[in-house]
Design a protein around this nucleic acid. Structure first.
Lengths: 336, 336
DNA sequence: TTGTAGGCGTTATCAA
DNA sequence: TTGATAACGCCTACAA
């Protein structure tokens, strides 16, 4: 059996209560006593039993994070940001990979609830539609990250995905492109992909392009799916001149897929991604994309969460982070 | 206050013990009673309080994982493998990113101990040297993954890093290369990088190459560091014809760095990586590398851990997973 | 098949 | 400044 507060108390010749006070840096303890206690702690190699503490205090210092895809570099950056801030506030992270499936999201929600997490950060988004209200998210302080949640009460932090997508199409249009293709995220990704589709639409509208004539394929944020999607688009409409992929990995896959079909990038086809993951500047041709900082987003999400846990009004906590078009080598004017 | 087992008991008109039995699928409960209880559970939206359960049973169903770098795709694959197996055994993961720093590893070790994790998977390796014995790893079932731990009692799972590195140098030598450069991992990465250095040495010895004449630089497993290292090597010894990087990200960075200096890959310089991350076949030129399956490794590590938790002798659990040289476009014969 | 009661290790209240 | 005591929610003998 592990050593408990009682053992320490015995060795130090004090009561368990006093030991507890020392552990928690209570100010009301004589220096001399504290020293004795600390010695005993060291000697016995005592470590607090978190479960007992959580049971008693009803405060787990755990933050549950639900996201989709551990091979998603952007998500991992975001997670790193969350972790950094969490560490500052003495929170620990527990991560559930939903793989974009609603069922798994609910599953993790239950598990996290059972562990009495102090807060929740949700980075995936299929949950939004069906649940949001009904689930026990109520009660648990929650911040959505990476997608904008329309509900006025739900705090969230993201870039303006709609505006960013619009910027991209505008940029391509100004370059002279008229025949577009889109590789979106999974259909279950309601928030992020949804917002971007809106942005695409609004740019199309501005420029009198018929949205319904534009091929849109679904990808799962993998290289493979990007490559596949682009091949479908190009076999469908070989004269497509610009393709917008909803993340960088798919865009990089798309570049390779298009090259396999014999297209020269960017001379015959422009390809644009989203996120600006580290890799994007190391790939060849270097990828044109929209930069958003996952790290900042995660960090800020955790800061928001901390404030909510401390009692701040969640409704106030909604923010767009800046985004930035990074023009590199994978985009250019359409072929003559 | 959250709803407890007592509330459920009251509503269902049974005792708390019975509710507990239902929750834990005890066979000794009448179907009819179970139904009543389950109804009450649903109606009250009851969720078990894990802390109380852990306190009582001394079994957290938590596995602590310590690794370095959430932007390391290989590590993330490994983690995914761990997670998959963990889920099968109803374990949850709690991950600590040590960033390769000993201090953080110890820190997480303490935290995990306080949470009374049922087991530990350690993927980072600076810990090995200084601690291993002294730390409270004792007591907690532990599996090391990705590096071979020499201690007979410590279960571990990895590829044979020594042999793999030797294979690579042998392959390059057979191609005709004589002037090598090495980009190793951080010096704190004692296990993995250490083993690979050994392999390099042993191939050199076989072929009468003086190990001390070969430039070895340290990288931190980032694109950037690979690019930097290769530039140093090439400015130092411009006639280097083959560079072995200890992971794929550094190798890809190295390719870009060498290209910036005007080298043609692979005609003037061969570059080889390690891991075979997904990206490596999508990069241009496609990367020659050694394939090891992070997913399998993680999965198996968790399977090992489960067996140890169930009482199996840890000493028996040591295994090398197969590795495989993947020859792609970034390597070839040296320039004439 | 079900209920009663005690204890897991902490912390918080109250009294000393 | 310290100690005694109860309580957090659950599980598990043991008894019924």
């Amino acid at each position: 059996m592990a050593v408990t507060i009682k053992d320490v108390a015995n060795l130090a010749g004090v009561s368990p209560a006093t030991v507890s006070r020392v552990i928690n840096n209570s100010s009301l303890v004589k220096e001399e006593t504290a020293e004795k206690v600390n010695e005993a702690i060291d000697k016995l190699n005592y470590q607090v039993n978190e479960s007992a503490r959580v049971l008693r205090t009803n405060c787990s210092s755990l933050i549950g994070v639900i996201g989709a895809g551990m091979d998603n570099p952007f998500l991992m950056k975001l997670l790193k940001g969350v972790e950094t801030s969490a560490k500052n506030h003495n929170f620990n992270l527990i991560f559930g990979d939903s793989e974009g499936e609603l069922e798994q999201e609910i599953n993790y929600l239950d598990i996290f609830n059972q562990k009495r997490v102090d807060g929740l950060i949700i980075i995936t988004a299929s949950i939004y539609n069906n649940l949001l209200e009904e689930i026990k998210i109520k009660g648990i302080p929650t911040v959505f990250a990476s997608g904008y949640v329309n509900d006025i009460e739900i705090p969230c932090i993201s870039v303006n995905n709609t505006k960013a997508a619009e910027d991209i199409i505008d940029y391509l249009y100004d370059l002279g492109h008229r025949r577009f293709g889109i590789v979106r995220g999974t259909y279950s990704d309601l928030v992020t992909s949804g917002e971007r589709i809106k942005g695409v639409k609004s740019s199309f509208q501005k420029h009198n392009i018929d949205f319904n004539s534009v091929p849109i394929y679904e990808g799962d944020f993998s290289f493979e799916s990007g490559s596949l999607a682009v091949k479908k688009i190009l076999s469908d409409k070989p004269d497509t001149s610009a393709i917008f992929c909803f993340d960088d990995k798919m865009a990089i896959g798309a570049i390779r897929g298009a090259e396999e079909l014999g297209y020269k990038i960017p001379d015959e086809l422009s390809i644009i991604g989203f996120d600006d993951i580290e890799l994007s500047s190391y790939v060849k041709p270097a990828l044109t994309t929209v930069r958003q900082s996952g790290y900042d987003m995660g960090y800020k999400a955790m800061e928001f969460l901390k404030r909510i846990i401390d009692g701040e009004d969640p409704g106030k906590l909604k923010e767009f982070l800046p985004h930035q078009l990074k023009i590199r080598e994978s985009s250019g004017p359409p072929p003559a």
